[in-house]
Design a protein around this nucleic acid. Structure first.
Length: 572
DNA sequence: GCCGTTTTCGGCCCGACTGTTTTCAGTCG
């Protein structure tokens, strides 16, 4: 049983307890346990077998027992009992914005409502507004929430939203009396998907900022408007929260609104232990504000060094910071190249020369031109005779380019029987070989794992591309035994890709961290099929940082010379 | 349900905004 499935059961228990009106701290305990299990870089089953479950923060005797039960039976007695008390379908109601556990319980007890469809009907028939504590306004809000849910305005890929957030900041900067301004929230942490855009500002005239904000042409509707906090929904669907704070508490507010929620709770608890109250208005001892202008002060108040936003998930960063063992994360400006770009020779839209020029503009030193192999006909895969022309084009570019070098590469298909789509003699021609799966996603775990292992064991393969095949919001990762793959890749000196295309981000953050811990090298590639998509490289760096990677874990920090050495050594 | 340089019991992060309310509960982040 996978970590995710165990976490799911615990989360359901938390939701049912919440609806039931159980002790909120017990609810939080289940939620925290679920989160921490999901963030594990080892199998929870393994920890259970070794009797080490209680080493996971937030898991004591009781939860350890329940987790063992869940692993062996797929469920636990407590969950089954709860499901008899509270209909599990009610959990779906909680996904409606504006509907929480109390409302869900009320709807079920008074009207017998269990599904979103039933709730929508009841609202349209105005049966909901007759309930105690609910009037027409709330009924309208619930209906609107259901509409939003239907439009799939849930979590959106970071790559779609980040440019929008940056544009909003630019507009506010230009049109309003802004002093400091930052995007906070999950965007600042660079989570792979985001639910809303959080923007924080300081200004001598916050009222004016709010005024400018709500009248921006991008804004569709105003959800809430206060003096310090305004929420709107953009016409394109995403919610934006704007908060104005005093300069004296900007750092505290930035830390607070960056989150994550779980990270903040831990920081505040550390504050309480030291007799401090930490909130978005600063750091307080009694009624006296003792800091908060800069973010560093918040961490310093609880005896911690500043923690990079990408790590703030309560996945062990606080313990690492306490022990002085935070990783020295790879920086965005240490990235010297992109491993994975498609050209006109296969299904890309840019020529070799254009890719080289774009790389120069991005400040890169090298780019791997890795087109598809022959089997992938739909993607214009290269037959052996196209390959010579491509090689010539790359050599021509490199002859006259001193600062940017292109690598003659391929993204060779791993066929459904585990063979590669080019024979070894042909593969030997390339400077850089990425092997990827593009078909047979429905095979079982053993078969898929075997295909990747076969590629790893071929000494001509440098990198395994988008290892899990997932597409955010579209396709789940196919089943793989990643632990075995990591260990094989480490032994063979094969790198695994962090594919930076905004819908892939594959490996993801948690898997990247597990790979790093297994001693696997990681290679960031944009998988760009156009010049614009080469901009996504920073999303891949974000994944690396969220995966606790240091420069030495990331091959993209290599200079061209170092990289050539590595590529050669690999083949020896 | 967890957890301990305040502790093995009694705490557990903190505030904004909305709607339905005359003082607050619910939701959200």
């Amino acid at each position: 049983m996978k970590n995710k499935e165990v976490a799911e059961v615990l989360r359901h228990i938390a939701a049912l307890l919440e609806i039931k009106g159980d002790n909120p701290f017990r609810v939080r305990a289940y939620q925290r346990a679920a989160q921490n299990i999901e963030a594990l870089t080892v199998d929870v089953e393994e920890l259970a077998r070794a009797g080490k479950l209680e080493r996971i923060p937030g898991i004591g005797k009781d939860l350890a027992q329940k987790i063992k039960e869940i692993i062996s039976t797929g469920t636990c007695q407590k969950y089954e009992d709860l499901k008899r008390e509270v209909p599990p379908e009610l959990i779906n109601l909680l996904s409606i914005p504006g509907v929480g556990p109390k409302t869900a319980k009320l709807l079920y007890e008074k009207l017998g409502i269990k599904s979103i469809e039933e709730l929508e009907r009841a609202c349209l028939e105005h049966r909901v507004s007759r309930l105690p504590g609910i009037r027409s306004k709330t009924e309208e809000n619930i209906l609107r929430g259901i509409q939003l849910l239907k439009q799939h305005v849930g979590r959106r890929p970071l790559g779609e939203i980040l440019p929008l957030a940056e544009a909003l900041v630019e507009m506010l900067r230009r049109q309003a009396p802004v002093d400091r301004i930052d995007v906070a929230g999950s965007i600042r942490r660079r989570r792979e998907t985001v639910k809303d855009i959080d923007i924080l500002v300081t200004s001598r005239n916050p009222a004016r900022i709010m005024e400018v904000f709500v009248s921006l042409p991008l804004v569709g509707e105003i959800i809430a408007r206060g003096e310090t906090k305004t929420s709107v929904r953009l016409k394109e669907g995403i919610q934006v929260d704007l908060r104005a704070v005093d300069p004296a508490c900007y750092g505290a507010a930035l830390a607070y609104f960056t989150g994550s929620k779980a990270h903040n709770i831990r920081i505040r608890e550390l504050g309480v232990q030291r007799g401090l109250k930490i909130n978005e208005y600063g750091i307080f001892r009694g009624d006296e504000r003792v800091g908060g202008r800069e973010e560093e002060e918040v961490f310093a108040a609880v005896d911690l060094p500043w923690i990079p936003p990408e790590l703030r998930e309560d996945r062990g960063e606080i313990e690492a910071a306490q022990a002085g063992q935070l990783p020295r994360l790879v920086n965005y400006d240490e990235i010297k190249g992109d491993f994975h770009v498609h050209s006109l020779f296969s299904d890309g839209t840019a020529s070799v020369e254009e890719i080289g020029a774009k790389a120069r503009q991005l400040g890169l030193k090298w780019v791997g031109i890795c087109d598809h192999s022959q089997g992938l006909r739909v993607a214009g895969g290269l037959t052996p005779k196209d390959i010579a022309a491509k090689k010539a084009a790359i050599q021509a570019f490199n002859r006259h380019s001193k600062d940017v070098k292109l690598l003659f590469g391929t993204e060779v298909d791993i066929l459904s029987d585990g063979r590669l789509d080019y024979p070894d003699d042909l593969l030997r021609e390339f400077e850089l070989v990425i092997a990827s799966i593009h078909s047979g996603f429905r095979q079982d775990e053993a078969t898929l794992t075997g295909r990747i292992l076969a590629a790893i064991e071929n000494p001509l393969v440098h990198i395994v591309g988008h290892p899990t095949g997932r597409l955010i919001g579209e396709r789940d990762p196919y089943p793989l035994d990643l632990k075995t793959i990591f260990s094989a890749a480490q032994k063979a000196g094969v790198a695994l890709e962090i594919n930076a295309y905004y819908k892939r981000l594959d490996l993801n953050d948690v898997n990247t961290r597990a790979a790093k811990e297994a001693g696997v090298l990681l290679a960031i590639g944009t998988d760009a099929h156009s010049l614009e998509q080469m901009n996504f490289l920073s999303l891949g760096v974000a994944v690396a940082r969220r995966g606790w990677c240091e420069p030495q874990n990331i091959l993209n920090t290599f200079s061209y010379r170092q990289l050539k050495e590595w590529l050669k050594k690999k083949v020896s």
